[in-house]
């Protein structure tokens, strides 16, 4: 297994390089002028523009030099020394402060979504073709069709403002859980629709297979058949898919954090988008994709554990 993980880690290198190349192209080549003009304000003189260029490092050669922009870009990423944001705070500090809040929001959200949608999907698959199944499916499709922003805005308005069941906005005095409860709830509601639908197709593929019939023929109860025999087989596509839902969690944390004022990574990213702070956005892109690659690796390892037919070599 260590050999497998090392091989997978080596496979990450071109991907990470690709991400760095892309962020470089986006923010240093295509977007450079935009950043400069934004900072310069109205009617800048060429001198001011040159100053800003120099300050942001845009005056250096792009690629072919020892201190070229690309080399600096890669160096920053490899050493995890991302420099400073526009407000002069080191980006790494911003990250360190934001991570706990983001985790407090996304981890419960993640497990909430997976547990609820897997259970619902199993039930829907078992009662396939009945009214129960159809209603679940319709609710899921309707849930997926409702705009994300409206979930957040209406949720915040009705649940927190009108009926005062939760906190409307982050306040540092209260515990993180009382601050994060409503965003977590909204995140789960949003995430369920698509997941239930996907897991249901996965379950349907499995529920008609021979081993389910065998398990019933043994006299096992429905509960044991579904939650032991079916679930362990369906685990394999489920694991792969949960990794695919992670980017949606990022979306969740982005908008949720900014609406509820939670000072996590998502909120920081949105602020950076608003103020066109390219070094922060570039760093976030890099960090998120590293996380994503690592989660992919974890999912592949879990995959091999869940399915005895797959070996690590």
């Amino acid at each position: 297994m260590p050999a497998y993980i090392i091989r997978r880690l080596l496979y990450m290198i071109p991907i990470v390089f690709g991400v760095l190349l892309l962020t470089f192209l986006l923010f240093n080549v295509v977007g450079a002028d935009q950043a400069v003009y934004r900072l310069a304000g109205n009617n800048p003189t060429p001198e001011i523009l040159d100053d800003i260029r120099h300050e942001l490092g845009y005056d250096k050669p792009l690629i072919f030099s020892i201190d070229s922009q690309f080399v600096t870009h890669v160096k920053k990423a490899v050493t995890f020394n991302f420099g400073k944001a526009l407000d002069k705070e080191p980006i790494i500090d911003k990250l360190k402060n934001g991570v706990p809040y983001s985790l407090a929001l996304t981890v419960p959200m993640f497990f909430g979504i997976v547990v609820t949608s897997v259970s619902l999907a199993i039930l829907a698959a078992f009662y396939r073709g009945t009214w129960f199944d159809r209603i679940i499916l319709l609710i899921c499709v309707a849930g997926m069709s409702f705009p994300y922003l409206s979930y957040i805005i209406f949720g915040q308005y009705f649940i927190a403002y009108k009926y005062d069941l939760f906190q409307i906005y982050f306040s540092p005095q209260r515990s993180i859980w009382s601050n994060a409860a409503l965003p977590i709830l909204i995140g789960i509601v949003v995430g369920i629709g698509g997941n239930v639908r996907f897991y249901r197709t996965v379950m349907l593929d499995e529920i008609n297979s021979g081993y389910i019939r065998t398990a019933f023929a043994k006299g096992l109860s429905t509960r044991v058949v579904l939650f032991k025999h079916l679930l362990k087989n369906a685990m394999i596509p489920i694991i792969t898919n949960t990794v695919l839902t992670l980017p949606y969690l990022c979306l969740g944390s982005l908008l949720l954090e900014s609406f509820f004022g939670i000072p996590g990574i998502g909120g920081i990213t949105l602020d950076a988008i608003e103020s066109r702070d390219f070094s922060v956005i570039s760093t976030m892109t890099f960090i998120f994709s590293i996380l994503f690659v690592i989660f992919n690796l974890i999912s592949d390892v879990c995959y091999a554990f869940a399915d005895p037919r797959i070996s690590f070599d």
Partner: peptide, 27 residues
């Protein structure tokens, strides 16, 4: 259903056509 469960696999057992798919691959 619960009475049937006590009979299935106990007093009446069944074997199926496809031995390839009738066993659960992950146990």
């Amino acid at each position: 259903e619960s009475q049937m469960r006590r009979i299935r696999g106990n007093e009446i057992a069944m074997i199926f056509q496809e031995p390839m798919t009738s066993l659960n691959p992950v146990f």
